[in-house]
Every structure is written in structure tokens, then in C-alpha cells.
Computed example of a mutant assay.
Amino acid sequence: MQAYLVGADTLGNIPDVLNQYGIAIHKHVSGRNASHQRKPASLKGVDLIILFTDFLGHNVMRHYREMAHEENIRFVACRRSVCALSQSLDKVCTKQCETCPAATANGRKH
């Protein structure tokens, strides 16, 4: 699964948490640059959008949520912490547990 991350200047331990869920980072934008604050041209190849709310303005979040809805891509909005991200991913991943390759490969129960 490929994720598009929006928000946060640095990711810290976030890539490790995503790896546990079988999620790779497709692209990461901080959201500070003016070009990051508009809808991206395309989200081709992205399965999940992760919005770190403590680093984003309302308009930036709205643009990415709308695009996710238009392209039928799931999105998660949470604070930039390992615990908050894990809790949000647990909610999203429970719907696809039986078919999730990460659940069987990592022995992880969502």
C-alpha cells in the first residue's frame, strides 16, 4: 500500500510505524510551501492519504480531503505522533484485515 503524507517537516519514527502496517511512503510534503497547499496534480498510485493535522491549515486539509473523495482514496487525519497514527491506522485497517498482506506477513492482528 502506498501513502501520500501531508504535514510535518520531519517524520521521525513515522516510517517505522507505517512499515509495520505494510505501508510505504509514496510522497511526503510538509504543507508549508505554497505549492503544497493546493491540490496535487495527481494521486496516481496512492492508496491512502495521511494528514498530520497539527501542522496543516484548514484549507490545505480541505483540498486533500476533497481530492481523496473525488479519486476514491481513503484518508486518515491525525496528530503527528506514533500513538495517534497507530490508532488511526487500526481503525482504517480493520476493514481489510483478512486480505491485508501486512497482517499475515508481520503476524499483526489489526
Results as ranks from 00 to 15, higher is better:
59 N>P: 00
50 I>F: 02
54 D>P: 02
68 A>C: 00
76 V>I: 14
55 F>D: 10
26 H>W: 14
29 V>K: 12
28 H>G: 06
88 S>M: 08
79 R>G: 04
83 C>N: 13
7 G>S: 10
50 I>N: 01
71 E>A: 07
109 K>A: 13
68 A>R: 00
83 C>T: 15
78 C>N: 03
40 P>W: 06
101 P>S: 11
97 C>L: 12
8 A>E: 12
64 Y>L: 04
91 K>W: 11
104 T>K: 15
89 L>P: 05
102 A>E: 10
41 A>Q: 13
60 V>N: 04
30 S>P: 02
34 A>R: 14
36 H>V: 03
99 T>C: 11
40 P>S: 06
47 D>P: 01
94 T>Y: 10
110 H>V: 15
14 I>S: 07
27 K>P: 00
43 L>Y: 02
36 H>L: 04
18 L>E: 08
63 H>E: 15
6 V>M: 08
50 I>S: 05
62 R>V: 11
13 N>E: 13
55 F>C: 07
48 L>C: 02
100 C>H: 05
62 R>M: 14
60 V>L: 09
59 N>Q: 14
54 D>I: 05
22 G>Y: 05
16 D>E: 15
71 E>R: 12
61 M>S: 08
33 N>F: 12
11 L>T: 05
7 G>W: 10
29 V>F: 04
75 F>S: 06
90 D>I: 06
28 H>S: 07
62 R>D: 12
10 T>S: 15
57 G>Y: 00
109 K>H: 13
65 R>D: 01
64 Y>G: 00
4 Y>K: 09
48 L>W: 03
106 N>V: 03
98 E>F: 11
76 V>F: 00
78 C>I: 05
67 M>E: 08
7 G>C: 10
5 L>T: 06
68 A>M: 00
78 C>Y: 04
101 P>Q: 09
22 G>S: 07
30 S>R: 12
11 L>I: 06
2 Q>F: 14
8 A>Q: 11
